[in-house]
């Protein structure tokens, strides 16, 4: 009984960090999505200059630990623009995720058969129209499984934004641990929350995959 009571109290305290974790993850995934698509398209279909930018972004950012990107964005970029910790952390995480998403979308864009671009050109679509209306929609569907994996990785990386002071689930677990000197309950609750989030995310993406699967 005491066990249950303790668990509930701990849960109620830590769960308040859930929205922060979800918020950071969603913002980061969205930002990474936009960057990943831009850089992915630039790499596959851009001219030398754009492809160069896309490649540099992806290679450099993936070579640097995410935590370093977060620090740089928070401490360097945000000395120019006034960002809150939440936004700096989320944007930085998104900036990092964008590099990984670049690779995901690049692979997906490449696996769309060349005939699709030819057929789109043949009905008079410009290159950009073809990319936007024909190639990208197919690439996005092809990218879904890998993207789902990235989503769960970003969810876990969302713990890193505490580096700039965003108290997400794991940090709230640490508060409990520091206060109670009992890591077991604190981390068990955190584990359950992350597990639940991952399961929900995976489930939602699986539905999306089934719904939008490309029948080839």
């Amino acid at each position: 009984m005491e066990f249950v009571q303790k668990f509930i109290t701990t849960f109620q305290f830590i769960v308040e960090g859930l929205w922060v974790t979800i918020g950071v993850t969603v913002v980061a995934l969205a930002v990474g999505f936009v960057l990943g698509i831009l850089a992915g398209v630039a790499r596959v279909y851009g001219n030398k200059f754009l492809a160069g930018i896309g490649t540099t972004y992806s290679v450099v950012v993936r070579a640097v630990p995410v935590i370093v990107i977060i620090f740089i964005l928070f401490f360097v970029i945000s000395s120019l623009v006034d960002l809150t910790a939440f936004w700096a952390g989320s944007l930085a995480l998104g900036f990092a995720s964008g590099a990984y998403q670049t690779e995901i979308f690049r692979g997906a864009l490449r696996s769309v058969s060349g005939g699709q671009m030819t057929a789109a050109s043949a009905i008079g679509m410009s290159r950009w129209q073809a990319i936007r209306h024909i190639i990208l929609p197919q690439a996005l569907r092809l990218a879904l499984p890998a993207w789902g994996n990235e989503a769960t990785l970003v969810l876990k990386d969302s713990t890193l934004v505490f580096a700039v002071g965003v108290p997400e689930v794991l940090r709230r677990a640490e508060y409990v641990k520091a206060r109670t000197f009992d890591p077991f309950f604190a981390y068990s609750v955190a584990l359950l929350l992350y597990l639940a989030l991952t399961l929900v995310t995976t489930q939602v993406l699986r539905q999306a995959e089934n719904r939008y699967r490309l029948r080839l």
Partner: peptide, 30 residues
């Protein structure tokens, strides 16, 4: 290319679109 129709050996239908959407997309977008 809008004035020249082309049909390929490998069909090259847009796989993410229905038959109707395949025919429509050039009309709406181009």
């Amino acid at each position: 290319r809008q004035r020249v129709g082309m049909v390929f050996q490998e069909f090259n239908l847009f796989t993410h679109l229905t038959a109707l959407e395949n025919v429509m997309i050039g009309m709406t977008k181009v």
